[in-house]
Design a protein around this nucleic acid. Sequence first.
RNA 1: GGUCCGGUGGCCGAGUGGUCAGGCACAGGUCUGCAAAACCUGCUACGGCGGUUCAAUUCCGCCCCGGACCUCCA
Length: 473
Amino acid sequence: MTALRFHNSLTRREEDFVPLDPQHVKLYVCGPTVYDLAHLGNARPVVVFDVLARLLRRLYPRVTYARNITDVDDKINARAREAGEPIGAITARTTSDFHRDMAALGNLPPDIEPTATGHIPEMIAMTEKLIERGHAYAAEGHVLFSVGSFADYGKLSGRNQDELLAGARVDIAPYKRDPGDFVLWKPSHEDTPGWDSPWGRGRPGWHIECSAMSWKHLGEEFDIHGGGADLLFPHHENELAQSRCAFGTSFMAHTWLHNGMLLVDGEKMSKSVGNFLTVQDILAQGAWAGEAFRMLLLRTHYRSGLDYTQPALDEAKAELDDSYAMLARAPAVSETLVIAEMAEWALEPLCDDLNTALALTRLRDLRTLENAATVGGSAASVLHRIGKGWALVPGQAAAAFRQASAVLGLMQGEPKAWLQGGDDSSAIEAAIAARITARAARDFAEADRIRAALLADGVVLEDSAAGTVWKRV
RNA sequence: GGUCCGGUGGCCGAGUGGUCAGGCACAGGUCUGCAAAACCUGCUACGGCGGUUCAAUUCCGCCCCGGACCUCCA
């Protein structure tokens, strides 16, 4: 496979990916704060970086993908107060909901899923290091990171201190030496979760959590850090500052990747606009919806903005219908060099900054080739366009399609289950048998009557030389 | 206001200094008892104004429009 390239947010350029250790690639992605059901926007980075992890695993002998669970946060505390529910109950339930929803979208679990509450000692240790090295100070029970102590502060997000100051739109706490200084540790009252620390009972700031967890599981320096573009500042800027200053390193992650924001019906999701959608809302549309939503996400390049609309989801479902139908028709074949070559070709775009949209286009081409081979027709124009001289053997393009799709986490289900899944189908089979008898007797009126009746029940028939097949719509 | 990222055909959406994206929709065709599916053909766009160039959707400048971020939203 060709060399991996990424658009690195840190350098704002596309560059070749060079692992720190080619035997072991390390990836960290910011996970959810578990206070409520995952919404559509939460799903995008999970899907995008799931594809990245699958791709890395294909290219390198060992990959460690860590994605955290933020289970200590003031939003969680607020939710617990409102709902009168214990914090532990909220975080446990929300974490399990998150796992369920992400699995429904076809995501594999990360290799490591550290929780913030499980890493308080590491956070305290890092905070102490930062104080020792003169990058942080304690004041009134708080510990603050001193942005003025780090010359590179602002480099990741592309801002300078003056801009940050000018843009500050919150009241500046009196104990801050610099308005840009941010909290590493803050005091907790009796009614708020807290841990004993050298600065009294308190809880960590948000940013230090990710620095501590990535340090614990991936080391002081690692390969790739991912997350939503909205986290670039302040979260990632602060993480980077904490980690580099605590360890005296020249970088935290070598490559920083940021996915674009998801809109719903052209607007940022919000409850007031009424376009707020959770993953559960999508999944409720049917058994097909999880995979269709994943397809929808991957049809757009991860760095671009993406507008979710219902017609777009329906189109993604229709594409899956067509693909599963193709897979259902294709005969099984044994692995060949051509199949490997086809799959490699389809996946090639992923190496160019994870171009999933182009990879999907190539999968469509494989689908057309397979259809031409199994159903009939000429694929000469497709072969000419893609510049390939593949001989069309039924089953081969389908096998390549299936292999390549696995890296996208798509179209791995049983075609029959996708097309015909649902309630008991014996009545449908019986009706089809009756229709075959009618057709054999050239009683087309009866045959058409049966077909129309099935269609009314959402069942579409397709006659071919090989017999009659059916699918639900 | 500042920083950054975008504006591609009816819709979605890649990409490129000059020969084709692709999908959906639509219109023809082949096949079929009729359909459906599949395949074939057609539909030829790159926000506006300048500039560089033999040649710009692709590079540069300005303008317009949209979005993200500007201290804890993926």
